[in-house]
Each structure stands twice: as C-alpha cells, then as structure tokens.
Design a protein around this nucleic acid. Structure first.
Lengths: 298, 298
DNA sequence: TCCAATCCATGCAGATATGCATATCAAACT
DNA sequence: AGTTTGATATGCATATCTGCATGGATTGGA
C-alpha cells in the first residue's frame, strides 16, 4: 500500500495555464479571447492569477502588446506539452463518444465548400437531423492536428501518421479562360502555343507549374505573373480575362463566362482524399459522416 | 503569417480534467478531494461536468465507489500526460521564482525530523522570517517526483537523473540496547557474541542485516524477530529492552536509558545526502535552504 | 500633429462554482 | 440482523468568476 500521493504540483489552476498557453501562442489577450470564445478581461485576469499563483512574471507589458519574459518562455514549453496532451484527451473523448447527435466540422477548399458540399450536407441533415455541421472553407491545408476540423477534403495524400485517409477518386482538372482572353492570345491549338500565356498561380510552390509541364508545356515562373490566395479570386480573374486558370472540369464546364483552353487536351488528374483523425474512427458520428461523404463524392 | 489556429480541442475545462485525473488515481472522489484540498461534492460535480462536456461516461457508479469505464481508462492515459506536464510546469515555475519569501517543504526520517531539524529550522526562521517551513517526517523515501517535498534528506545516493544530490558527510551508526537487556544476554564482548541476540529491524529488505554482517557478525533472519515501521517505535523498543537497535551515534550516545553494545566496535558508516529537484536549483529560496541545511548538517 | 485602430486595465451586475451540512447508500464487521 | 464505516449525491448560502461596457494607453498612418 503506497503512501497517499501529494498532488502539490498539480494543484494550481489548470485553466489559467490554458489561458497562458493560448495567449502566448496567439500573441495577445484579445486574440486568445477570440480563439477561445471568451472575453478578453477574463483571459487577462486568468494570466494575472497564474502569475500570482506561481509567483512569476510571465509577460512583460510592453505598449499595446505582451512580450514573454524568459521565465515565461521557460514555462511555455511545459504548458505546450499540457496543451498537446489536452488535444489528445479531447480527441480520444470525441472518438469514444458513441452518440450520433452532436456537432461536426468539415474542412474543404472554397470551391468545394461552396459548390459540392451543400447538397451533401443537405442530405446529411435529412438523414440525421441531430448532427449540426460546421464548414471551414480554407485554401491552406487545414491543420487537423490542432483540430481545425474533424474531417477534411484534400487534394493530396496526407503524410501525418495520426490520420486515416481514403482516396475517393481522381478529378479531371482543365484549363479555362474567358473567350476575350483566348482571342487575344490567338486561340492556341497546341500546348506549345501557351508558352507566352499568363496563368493565375494558386500556391507559391511550383506545384501547378510542374503539373502542367508534365503535360507537354514548358512554362517558367514568368508564366505565372498573378498569385491568387484563394480559388474564388482566381476564378473571378479568369472570368474577367486576366489569364488562364485551372479547375475541376465538372465545375468549370458549367460556367458560361469561360471556355476550355485546348478543349481536347487530356485533363490533369488530381486526387480527392478524405482525411480524419485515427482516433475519430471509433466515433459513430464521425464514421457516419465520413462514409456519407465518401459515397456522395465518388 | 499562419492562419489563426483553432483551439477547439483545448477548449474543454482543464480543471475538470485534473479532477478526473486525481479521482482516477486516488480511487475515489473523497480521497481525491482530500489530496487536492477541496470538497468532495466539488470534485464529484467536476467529474460529472467533464462527462457531460465530453459526452462520455468515465466512471461506473458501483456501490460505494467508482470504477473506470473502458472509455475512462482510454482517456486516463492522456490526462496523465497532462498531469505530468503540469508537474513540470509547477516545478519550473518554482525554480524560476526568485523571491525568497514563500513556503518550503523538507522531508526527513522521523529521527532527523524530530531531533536534528528543529534547531536548523529555528535558525532558518531567524535568518529568513519570510520562509514558512513544512516538515514531512516519513520513513519511506519520499517521492520527490510527485513533489511530496522540495528538499529531502536521505541515507542513500539517489538514482533519479532529475534530482541533484549533495553528500553531506558520513554518520557513524552504532548499536544500542538497554542495560537490562545487555545483562540478560551476558554483556557481549565480541561481534560473535551477538549471534543469538535480538535486533529490531527497520526495513523488510535485508539492508540492515547485510550491513552488520560486513562488520564481522553472522546474523540470519531469525536475529530480526521484530520489525518496526518507524525509527521512534524502534527506539522505544530498544529503551524498553526488547532488543538491539542501530542509530546515529551522536543521537544514541546522549540517551541515558541505553548504552552502546560493543562500545569499541567500529561504527557502521552511512551517508547523508541532501536531495532536490534539478529545476529547483535555480530558485533563490530553495538554494538558500539547501545551502543552509548543507552547512548545518556538516 | 492628429486621428483611427488596437490593445490592456477596471467597475459592476449577473452567472457559476464552491463548501458546508446532510441525506442516502452499500459493504464489512459483530 | 444490526451497526459501523466510508462512500456518493443534494440543498442552500456564499464566494468566486465571467462578461459587458468603458476608460486609458500606445502604435501606425494620414
């Protein structure tokens, strides 16, 4: 029989530690309050309280913002570890939950979120009215580690080992431009004819350029004079004749303001992956939505 | 510039997680409440709240106690990780604290706590009235990992790498018995004369027996018919003639009710170690007490 | 230099959680 | 079977925390 443990070292207010963590990570009390859905004074008082409780100065009040003191930086490492563990707690809890009702969060690119998801979500709501859905439309691949979403639709195979992923199918991506723009560059007939055309870039890495070059073009960086940070912006630019854009053929073909560039060119195939946390696989609700998405997207 | 993180997975009440952790580790709400210095209904409600928040049944209410459900067991791993990180937070916070005033906890064996520490603590209080002292008198080596104490006085070199230890000096331990008992067994003159004597054992391992056998005796388990769980009990038994006990010579020699067994025998030397957490080395308060103890015990 | 924006600090009313006392319950012991 | 012990739940007064509204301070730009 072991002597009753002393929990002196865990007696401090863990919520205050959380307040400190989010404040430090977000950079300000206000941002942390927004991220946590709390009021800014509350967070401020919690951080103050932690400082008093631990008898340490965590932040230097400098001007309009806060700056971590060396001591605070020292603590932040361990508080981060608490946060990571807390994430795992929340995740496995979600996975253990066997009730079908509840909230679920789906991340997808903006085009998918606005054009493909709505009918699927309508069907989901019909099938399971107890499930409330939240859609995060984000161009950058959503950070599932921090649980920006429960399920994500991605265009590449995820590498993180904590995730389970299912490849749904390949999407044919085609090049589109406005009729005016095509007239201006002389109605190209061969990939080679595009050597001086302007493309709207979507990411700062060369992924798009490399993909196009494998199809017989020889493009360089000067062919991508415009960088759009999101799909809707890119698509607007294409419609208004700024240049050539690439998009899912099933979406682009129904847009009357644009037409295909090189209509008979083989489409560039890119995959659709459905991604979720491994732990969430055991949750009835997540499973249900995951399977529905897989079926409807196929 | 990274997109504002979503902290959905850390939004749950961390204090409720702490309540769950301590309850699961201690085995009952009441025990957890005692350990945390809170009321039992509070902890019960916190655990209930966590169950509702995560939509999981953590404990099975069975009879007078609680039993972890499989889901709860699953979560416990990660909550334990949170607790370990929390310990580190508290520890480094203590280490970063540069104020001399505050509380400190010293662990020592019962004899040391009652006979050696008082004058040192009196001196400490005179030097630094802002420091409040707590003494934990425990026979079993205190668990510094869980912060039963900030500084411990031990009789062996600690093996844990997280601890810093300083060897103070070697203590001469001698054998004592009451005059009546010595008369009864015939006033032994040589170690060999003790082959049939009764010794008061202090630990269930054979440490004491082995130490004595290296000094020329040949004792077996039957020479240790009595096991005392603490030093004071052992010493009382020695004074009342139950058998032979071993104690620090500087303490035993001043007790009028006993006398040395084999007065000229070489004393059994055992070391005094002062032990503290590595992180606490940077705390002014801990440093000060540590150094004072080292100086006074030498 | 002034203005606007943004952020942290404070006061106060209402919501929430806590602790005490107590009821209730199950298991072990006589 | 009755009693004792040690456990979990409940009611209520109180203490604490939270959020809203507001004030004060600083930065960046017109």
């Amino acid at each position: 029989m072991h002597i009753c443990m002393d929990w002196r070292s865990v007696k401090f207010d863990w919520n205050k530690a959380r307040a400190f963590l989010v404040t430090a990570e977000e950079g300000s009390l206000s941002a942390a309050a927004r991220a946590l859905g709390m009021a800014q004074p509350t967070l401020g008082r919690q951080v103050d309280g932690l400082e008093q409780e631990l008898d340490i100065v965590l932040f230097e009040r400098v001007g309009r913002g806060l700056k971590l003191t060396p001591s605070g930086l020292e603590l932040l490492d361990h508080v981060r570890a608490m946060g990571d563990a807390a994430s795992k707690v929340s995740l496995t809890a979600m996975g253990q939950s066997q009730s079908i009702d509840g909230s679920i969060c789906i991340a997808a690119s903006e085009t998918y979120a606005s054009l493909v998801l709505p009918p699927i979500i309508a069907k989901l709501r019909r099938l399971e009215p107890g499930i409330t859905v939240e859609v995060v439309a984000s161009n950058s691949p959503s950070d599932l580690r921090r649980r920006e979403a429960d399920i994500a639709i991605r265009n590449f195979r995820p590498t993180e080992p904590d995730l389970i992923a299912k490849k749904i199918r390949d999407i044919p991506a085609r090049l589109y431009a406005s009729p005016e723009y095509l007239d201006r560059i002389g109605r190209p007939k061969l990939p080679y004819d595009l050597r001086n055309a302007d493309f709207i870039n979507l990411d700062s890495t060369g992924m798009l350029m490399n993909g196009l070059n494998t199809m017989g073009m020889s493009l360089t960086k000067k062919n991508f004079p415009v960088l759009a940070e999101n799909y809707n912006v890119m698509w607007e630019m294409v419609k208004q004749g700024v240049g050539i854009g690439i998009l899912d053929g099933t979406i682009g073909d129904v847009e009357p303001l644009v037409e295909r560039v090189l209509p008979d060119l083989e489409p560039l195939m890119f995959p659709i992956w459905l991604v979720a946390h491994r732990e969430l696989n055991t949750s009835r609700r997540i499973r249900m939505v995951f399977d529905l998405l897989a079926a409807e997207l196929a």
